[in-house]
């Protein structure tokens, strides 16, 4: 069975955690949740996963495992989560209603913050996360509305803002990747602006450019997002037997 688009997205999310040692992996969204588990089972074996509630879990439970069947490793209520965030022992994939060229993210409000056209959930922990530990974003609906020149409310801090925020803002700041349903993006450019890192198989570079509301850096040769190995493909299926990932990302 050849990998689906959702498989590539989950695998790309797993790559966010490559090279991580014993850090807490927090992952919001279906592809990130599968990705963190896949990384834990393969190339990032020391990764620490959460139950999405108030505990760290042992192993890499299948999506949708009932809480009573999880093996808990440690207590992690919200107050302790902040200790972990501020210690830097965390790697995170958040979602973004808007993300921009410089890696700013918005989950607060659309339009003018003072009287928004759409109030979203609020900045949540995005300001603190982004200046304390590596943060990446997952955008399952890549479009000029989600990939914008400048986000309306800077919730997660991008590179330019981290710079202007001073040394204390820069010190632990890293926006590692942005993963969308079309490709993978990083900030590996002299100006720390967004670059197309790979396109998922079946997606053209033109398609990405068209769906992006700002000028991306496009390398001469854009690689394809790597294919899952047969083992990884099997693990994807095992971790998400009901195919929840296919509902989040359509072919």
């Amino acid at each position: 069975m050849s990998p689906t688009r959702a498989d590539y997205c989950a695998l790309a999310c797993a790559e966010v955690f490559r090279g991580d040692g014993e850090v807490m992996a927090s992952a919001f969204g279906t592809a990130p949740a599968i990705g963190a588990r896949l990384a834990r089972l393969t190339f990032a074996p020391d990764l620490v996963l959460t139950d999405g509630d108030a505990a760290l879990v042992s192993g890499a439970p299948v999506l949708g495992t009932p809480p009573g069947s999880l093996v808990l490793e440690s207590h992690m209520p919200y107050r302790k989560v902040f200790d972990v965030v501020w210690s830097g022992r965390r790697n995170l994939i958040m979602m973004a209603s808007q993300v921009d060229r410089s890696g700013n993210q918005n989950i607060s409000a659309i339009g003018d913050w003072a009287r928004p056209s759409a109030q979203l959930v609020g900045v949540r922990g995005a300001p603190g996360n982004t200046v304390n530990h590596s943060t990446s974003y997952w955008v399952p609906n890549h479009s000029p509305r989600s990939f914008v020149e400048q986000v309306d409310v800077v919730s997660g801090v991008g590179y330019e803002r981290a710079d202007s925020g001073g040394p204390a803002a820069r010190r632990f700041h890293e926006i590692r990747f942005v993963v969308s349903n079309l490709g993978v993006f990083d900030f590996d450019t002299p100006s720390r602006t967004m670059r197309l890192r790979s396109v998922h198989p079946g997606v053209s570079v033109d398609q990405v450019v068209e769906a992006t509301g700002f000028t991306l850096t496009i390398p001469d040769n854009v690689p394809l997002t790597r294919e899952p190995t047969p083992d990884e493909q099997q693990l994807l299926q095992m971790l998400d037997p009901k195919g929840l990932r296919e509902r989040e990302v359509k072919e």
């Binding site: 913050w113 003072a114 300001p127 200046v131 304390n132 800077v154 801090v157 803002r161 981290a162 001073g166």
Partner: peptide
């Protein structure tokens, strides 16, 4: 004191 908020629009709004 905290690092959280630096560089974000929390400071602007």
């Amino acid at each position: 004191p905290t690092r959280a908020g630096l560089g974000s629009d929390v400071m602007r709004v």
